[in-house]
Nucleic acid binder design. Structure first.
Length: 276
DNA sequence: AATGCTGTCAACCGCCCGGGA
DNA sequence: ATCCCGGGCGGTTGACAGCAT
């Protein structure tokens, strides 16, 4: 008994999306909201599979997406999260506002994996690589002790901890509040370090996402240069109000490539000041 | 200048899960 | 309890750009 295909394969277009298709999809979702994805292509006048529409929207057209490479802080966070969650990219992405699972997965496979291997760390287990498999004589300081390599990002961790403690409105949740899925230890025999690690405790909590530090992403800021790319959707008060940049044509892609206002930059800026 | 190689990333595919009938 | 369906997820692919030869 075969599974019914998600859409009629006949007449369904595949491959890269055109600006025209993007426009149709965006227009439709702005008008109708996200509804039954299977119905979207028909209603929006697209010869696409519903799945494809959903993917295009979530990975590319969503107004709250950040673009450009992950910065160092985000990269470290991905490594930390991967050590605990494994390849559950959607869970990892959920902790990085504005980033998609696809994006993180790609970045992991193309950048971080290599980086870790270079450092003598097995990207799968996050354990030191077997010496027989290691690349030529890694320097002692590059040798991690289990997950201690994360300490190389001590600055980041401290900063994020600081950021979290600065958010006086938030009651940080404990690891117990996590779903069993997320709180499980990634590698056998490894204790759940979250209990002792306020950073991870915070990151794995919903309070992380509710942290007012992220609010800038959704707060209208009209008192500075309108050409600031941060205004192009990221700081939108509402999707509708700020989608004109997207609907204006294809140019938005190029503009977004120069996007440099990352969440961590914001947090670090906001919370490091009194530290340095 | 032409060709081949490598890296990157958008998009697809197939499977799984949860909710509703 | 079972089946069906839609949505979501992770793995993989393929097109393209940039670099090396």
């Amino acid at each position: 008994m075969g599974r019914q295909p998600c859409c009629d394969k006949l007449g369904v277009k595949k491959g890269p999306w055109t600006a025209e298709e993007d426009k149709k999809l965006v227009n439709f979702i702005l008008t109708n909201g996200q509804c039954c994805w299977r119905a979207v292509p028909k209603l929006a006048g697209l010869r696409r599979c519903g799945k494809s529409c959903r993917l295009r929207w979530t990975n590319y057209l969503r107004p709250d997406l950040k673009r450009g490479l992950l910065n160092e802080a985000e990269e470290q966070l991905v490594i930390d999260l991967h050590a605990r969650l494994g390849n559950r990219w959607s869970k990892i992405a959920a902790r990085l506002p504005g980033r998609t699972d696809n994006e993180i997965k790609n970045h992991w496979n193309t950048h971080i994996k290599k980086k870790l291997i270079k450092m003598g760390i097995d990207p799968v287990t996050h354990e030191p690589l077997n010496t027989s498999q290691e690349l030529p004589s890694p320097r002692p300081q590059d040798q991690p002790q289990n997950l201690d390599f994360i300490n190389q990002s001590e600055t980041l961790d401290n900063n994020i901890c600081h950021a979290s403690s600065s958010s006086s409105d938030n009651n940080l949740t404990t690891p117990e509040s996590l779903s069993g899925d997320e709180s499980r230890s990634f590698s056998d025999g490894q204790t759940n370090a979250d209990e002792d690690d306020p950073l991870m405790s915070y990151i794995f909590s919903d309070a992380f996402l509710m942290d007012s530090s992220w609010e800038f992403l959704f707060t209208a800021t009209n008192d500075h240069e309108p050409e600031n790319v941060c205004d192009l959707g990221l700081s939108s008060p509402s999707v509708d109000d700020n989608f004109t940049w997207l609907l204006d044509g294809q140019g938005f892609v190029d503009e977004d490539l120069s996007l440099s206002c990352f969440a961590y930059d914001h947090i670090l800026t906001n919370h490091m000041g009194d530290k340095n």
